[in-house]
């Protein structure tokens, strides 16, 4: 499970049930989304289904996430990927496979490669700036996604080093979950889309349990995410976020 997806999902969590009575500012909405994206620590088990040209594959992983900087993921299934681990510490990323017993640093050009054949790159996983940090936002209107009324946010990158220079997000007015997102190129061309499915509530937080991530330029079924279980504010031993733990 990629960290980006985690951010998206978690970022989509709603904060409190107390919805804003009047239209909040774009910054406020973004803040609400962001505040839920990085809420201390969380442990989750998730699934990712990748639709290949010939067959589809589902990968299950367990992730331990502490704030913005630290994440540890262990793949559980399929058997081939079992035991593969990834560690993110700040802007560094390692991957470990039990077959090779090596912790390989993923850096530079490698970061732009796809993770496990999905529509996401390692770089997408590494993106740890909050939406608020990365984008200027403006409320462009409201629109329903399915039966949920949403704010439509237009996000414009604050600096040139953001992968997607602009985005359009549909944020649930009540739950502050991103239900739909479009990511655009500098030219304004649509590159990626995200659509959330079932939204549920865990430990008082709203979050989407399903989402589909698509490369808009490419044909194919995209990459599907599902959260199987999630625990917030669970204690995570600090030792987990070390390279030594990759080998365990």
């Amino acid at each position: 499970m990629s960290r980006s997806a985690i951010l998206i999902l978690i970022g989509a969590l709603a904060a409190s049930a107390a919805a804003f009575a009047q239209a909040p500012s774009a910054e406020e909405i973004l803040d609400r989304v962001d505040r839920n994206a990085v809420p201390g620590s969380k442990i989750l088990v998730s699934e990712m289904t990748i639709h290949g040209r010939r067959e589809s594959r589902t990968i299950r992983a367990k992730s331990w996430i502490e704030g913005e900087d630290k994440a540890f993921t262990e793949y559980l299934d399929p058997p081939r990927e079992r035991g593969v681990k990834m560690l993110k510490l700040g802007d560094r990323l390692w991957t470990y496979s039990p077959d090779t017993d090596r912790a390989i640093s993923i850096s530079g050009h490698m970061l732009r490669q796809s993770v496990m054949g999905s529509d996401l790159s390692y770089e997408d996983m590494m993106e740890d700036r909050t939406l608020r940090d990365a984008y200027e936002a403006r409320v462009a209107g409201d629109e329903a996604v399915g039966d949920r009324p949403c704010w439509v946010l237009e996000l414009t990158a604050k600096s040139g080093d953001v992968a997607y220079p602009s985005r359009k997000s549909w944020v649930d007015k009540e739950r502050f979950v991103v239900l739909k997102e479009e990511r655009y190129a500098k030219s304004g061309k649509l590159l990626k889309t995200l659509e959330a499915g079932a939204v549920g509530r865990v430990q008082g937080r709203w979050l989407p349990f399903e989402a589909v991530f698509r490369d808009a330029l490419k044909e194919g079924g995209g990459t599907e995410f599902r959260i199987l279980s999630v625990a917030f504010d669970a204690p995570i031993p600090e030792a987990l976020f070390t390279k030594a733990s990759l080998r365990k």
């Binding site: 081939r80 593969v84 496979s97 077959d99 017993d101 090596r102 390989i104 496990m116």
Partner: peptide, 16 residues
């Protein structure tokens, strides 16, 4: 040395 590639199914493949 470790080879990092793509498995037939598209997954991450690593081998020494």
């Amino acid at each position: 040395a470790t080879l990092i590639g793509s498995s037939m199914a598209g997954g991450l493949a690593m081998a020494n």
